[in-house]
């Protein structure tokens, strides 16, 4: 009759032993950071960009372990949707129908092994794009797959 206790006994013992064991490797649970507070960062919330002229997208990225990659998405906000993560609201033009809205989606890989990186990318908005309210979304991942999104409201002049 004792036999019947052997298997459950082993299972229970295993259960308690493994339950007490500390996790050997700490995993990364921190999000990467997008910093646009520096004076040289561009664009900034409620900022504006001139059509037909070059501008430099500049922001600094940080992560506690290793950065992954970044991506930007500039799209119109003529319908007044919002995913801005900035607190302040900007003065918006009235809702309008897009005719030739500017759309730019671009990914920027980050070289392996970096904890900090300042992105400097020259971009240009065509002169014939619709002016008005736009969103400038920055997406940043770290090596572990955590993603931070920053949405900035801008105007094309």
């Amino acid at each position: 009759m004792k036999k019947k206790y052997i298997i459950p006994g082993i299972l229970i013992a295993g259960y308690f032993l493994s339950g007490c064991k500390k996790d050997s490797a700490e995993v990364d649970t921190s999000y990467p950071e997008i910093d646009i507070t520096a004076a040289s960062a561009f664009p900034k919330q409620c900022g504006s960009i001139r059509r037909g002229e070059k501008f430099i997208f500049r922001a600094s990225f940080h992560d506690n372990v290793e950065l992954g990659s970044s991506s930007i998405d500039i799209h119109h906000n003529f319908d007044h949707h919002t995913h801005s993560t900035e607190v302040s609201n900007c003065n918006m033009e009235p809702v309008k129908k897009p005719v030739n809205p500017f759309l730019l989606i671009k990914t920027f890989p980050i070289a392996a092994g970096q904890k900090s990186f300042t992105i400097n990318e020259e971009l240009v908005v065509p002169a014939d794009a619709d002016p008005g309210d736009y969103h400038f979304m920055i997406r940043l991942t770290d090596k572990a797959g955590w993603q931070t999104i920053k949405g900035i409201s801008i105007k094309l002049l």
């Binding site: 259960y15 991506s71 998405d73 671009k106 991942t141 955590w146």
Partner: peptide, 27 residues
């Protein structure tokens, strides 16, 4: 109590990359 082992658990893995061609710039 229970113990469970999967040799090949299927999961959706958030990678560090963004896709331009199909993913519209998303992770």
């Amino acid at each position: 109590p229970f113990y469970n082992y999967f040799p090949n658990y299927i999961y959706l893995n958030p990678t560090a990359d963004h896709d331009y061609d199909y993913g519209a710039g998303n992770q």
